[in-house]
């Protein structure tokens, strides 16, 4: 029935992996476990190591040290049984340029026993790809669509998406998200998605992994994250606010003695009330969306 139920081990596990490219350290002592059925949003700034992590999960790149397991198999030994369950959409995937989209789909389909023609047809329609055109004639956005088609149509259990929609327009992005949600409902697949289009990520992820300069800085349920980051506005008509706050959960502060804007990271529901009382001010609490959280997540390590 549910394919993920039959696999006892988590689809992806990284244990203290370090990846070095010459002088550059892409990942540093990185440990992560992605359990089945989870939709992980991979957040980080450019060059943080997201693509490297996804490539390691896909077995395309091997860690310099440490171990990574995809479906319980070390990345270096991934073979047909694992690869049929794995779907990868790379940021700049190179296809066979002279083939038409149709030919390429047929070619890749011949390698997967479970290639879903119905799904393929639906996706081709939803993403508005012309199957008769050659890959070489396609724009960047259309090539991205082809990469998505090639990575998704065999209904993988683990789907690794590296900036899958950076070149897609909002309408196609919305359709793609719908299709991804459908995959989640029907296959219960595990997804790891890295994207800078946070609006879209927000709609599907249930877990956030933050990377900064190759290090893991956040690994938490999205709900929990949303409930722990907030913006507090302190207003004191009497001008009783201090010039700075010493509370460790306050990440940023701007304002003067009458008004202060704080970005905080705390799960303590009573903290806002206590702080307001301690400085004799009124407080307004506003939750943050992912875009507002992003700089706080991806630079919390640097701050500390």
């Amino acid at each position: 029935m549910n394919p993920t139920a039959s696999s006892p081990c988590p689809p992806f596990v990284a244990r203290q992996i370090t990846k070095r490219y010459d002088q550059h350290v892409a990942l540093k002592d990185f440990s992560l476990e992605v359990p089945a059925g989870r939709v992980v949003g991979l957040l980080g700034r450019n060059g943080a190591g997201k693509t490297t992590l996804l490539n390691i999960a896909a077995g395309l790149v091997l860690p310099t040290s440490g171990e990574s397991f995809t479906f319980g198999i070390p990345g270096a030994n991934l073979d047909s049984p694992q690869l049929t369950r794995l779907g990868v959409v790379q940021q700049e995937g190179r296809c066979i340029e002279w083939m038409t989209v149709r030919q390429h789909l047929d070619f890749n389909a011949s390698f997967y026993p479970g290639w879903d023609r119905e799904l393929e047809k639906r996706l081709v329609a939803a993403l508005e790809v012309d199957p008769a055109r050659k890959i070489v004639q396609l724009s960047t956005g259309d090539r991205q669509k082809v990469n998505i088609l090639l990575g998704v149509c065999h209904r993988p259990e683990l789907l690794l998406l590296d900036e899958p929609m950076s070149a897609l327009d909002p309408i196609v992005r919305a359709r793609l998200l719908d299709q991804l949600l459908e995959r989640l409902r029907e296959d219960g697949c595990t997804v790891v998605i890295s994207s800078h289009i946070l609006d879209d990520v927000e709609k599907i992820v249930d877990w956030i992994v933050g990377i900064d300069q190759g290090e893991l800085v956040e690994d938490r349920a999205f709900d929990e994250l949303q409930e722990s980051y907030a913006e507090w506005t302190l207003i004191s008509p009497h001008g009783s606010l201090p010039a700075s706050f010493s509370e460790p959960y306050i990440l940023s502060h701007q304002g003067d003695e009458r008004q202060a804007l704080l970005r905080v990271h705390t799960r303590d529901a009573g903290a806002a009330g206590r702080l307001a009382a301690s400085v004799q001010a009124e407080i307004r609490v506003r939750p943050l969306n992912l875009e507002e959280m992003f700089p706080l997540i991806t630079s919390s390590r640097r701050k500390a």
């Binding site: 998200l177 949600l181 709609k203």
Partner: peptide, 14 residues
């Protein structure tokens, strides 16, 4: 759960 997640375009886990 399935129906509502389809209607709201939300992750079924949510």
């Amino acid at each position: 759960t399935r129906t509502l997640s389809a209607d709201l375009a939300l992750n079924p886990m949510t």
